[in-house]
């Protein structure tokens, strides 16, 4: 038995040697002339990043720093809500601020994903003559907010230089009036219902082209309608427009770009330049989709997204390359 049993350890060695095959390495092509940029929104998408194509600079703000964005032009009066943090509003059809309002009776509304200023959730709470409706709104900041979820809201006054809004808790406590001064250098001024107006949020109108932000997209074709928070790119409302093509990135010239139809729709670039691939278990960017951007300075750029992860494999870090035409 001793001799015959000796070959058993040999057999065992053979089987224990079976192992995973070695990986093969890929070779990359030579790099081109485009500028490659990576910004980081955070894996929780808590940052908003304003990017300037002309000088390749950007500024970073916190998404949750604001509840309302108010038109900052001298004749502006409309308001956007922070859909990226889940804010929604419900008009109460009443002007009595001190009344008790029941959230179960609220019909919640959202801004359009295109950021069209004439179709907002708050709507026409004033007009171009600055006559306010004084309607009371309920504002819901979602359960994820670190502040009080439900607030009452009322526009008291708007002029060519400032807003006065009144806010309180549902039970009437924490009643306060906030003054927000307009700034002609920016498109919107921002306010947080507890922390007050922000001295600065978005850069000056001429200093950015688009922002990476979380915002709300609404699937109106579903039943029921589904509001969904997405992470994407929104154009500067001031003087910036975009077009797209599926031509090869390297072959696009200014002449080719000028033939395309440009739009100033703010969510034109949007969020679907990436999609989740269940097989790869990762967000994959659509590198075949090339954006042409007419920047705030009038200069044309071609741009495409090439990744959504940083070097540590963490999502929320869009990488894009662009080139001046």
């Amino acid at each position: 038995m001793k001799r015959t049993a000796l070959f058993l350890p040999v057999l065992a060695l053979i089987f224990f040697a079976a192992c995973e095959k070695e990986e093969k390495a890929y070779t990359l092509p030579a790099p081109g002339n485009a500028v490659v940029e990576q910004i980081n929104m955070g894996s929780d998408y808590s940052k908003v990043i304003f990017y300037n194509l002309n000088d390749e600079t950007f500024s970073i703000e916190e998404l949750a720093d604001w509840d309302l964005a108010l038109e900052s032009t001298t004749d502006g009066y409309r308001a956007l809500i922070n859909g990226g943090t889940g804010v929604q509003v419900a008009p109460m059809g009443d002007t009595s601020f001190n009344a008790l309002y029941d959230i179960d009776n609220a019909t919640w509304k959202w801004d359009p994903p295109s950021f069209l200023i004439d179709s907002t959730a708050i709507g026409e709470w004033s007009n171009n003559k600055f006559i306010t409706t004084r309607e009371v709104y309920l504002l819901d900041r979602s359960v994820n907010s670190s502040f009080e979820q439900y607030k009452k809201l009322q526009l008291l006054e708007v002029t060519d230089t400032y807003y006065l809004i009144r806010t309180a808790s549902l039970d009437g406590s924490n009643d306060q009036v906030i003054r927000i001064n307009k700034d002609p250098n920016v498109s919107y001024v921002y306010v947080h219902l507890e922390n007050g107006p922000l001295a600065k949020y978005e850069p000056r109108k001429e200093e950015w082209d688009f922002m990476f932000t979380r915002y709300r997209y609404v699937y109106y074709d579903m039943t029921p309608i589904i509001p969904y928070e997405v992470n994407g790119v929104v154009l500067n409302a001031h003087n910036v427009s975009a077009a797209e093509t599926r031509m090869a990135f390297d072959s696009i010239t200014l002449e080719e770009a000028m033939k395309l139809n440009f739009t100033s729709r703010r969510d034109f670039i949007g969020f679907d330049w990436k999609y989740y691939d269940f097989d790869k278990e990762a967000y994959i960017t659509d590198i075949g989709r090339v954006l042409l951007i007419r920047s705030h300075s009038g200069i044309y750029f071609k741009l495409r997204f090439i990744d959504f992860y940083d070097a540590d494999g963490v999502k929320g870090a869009p990488t894009f390359e662009f080139q001046r035409l």
């Binding site: 890929y26 790099p31 081109g32 790869k280 990744d307 494999g313």
Partner: peptide, 8 residues
């Protein structure tokens, strides 16, 4: 991507 090949 044009500048990397990676997997998760």
């Amino acid at each position: 991507t044009p500048y990397a090949v990676y997997a998760r």
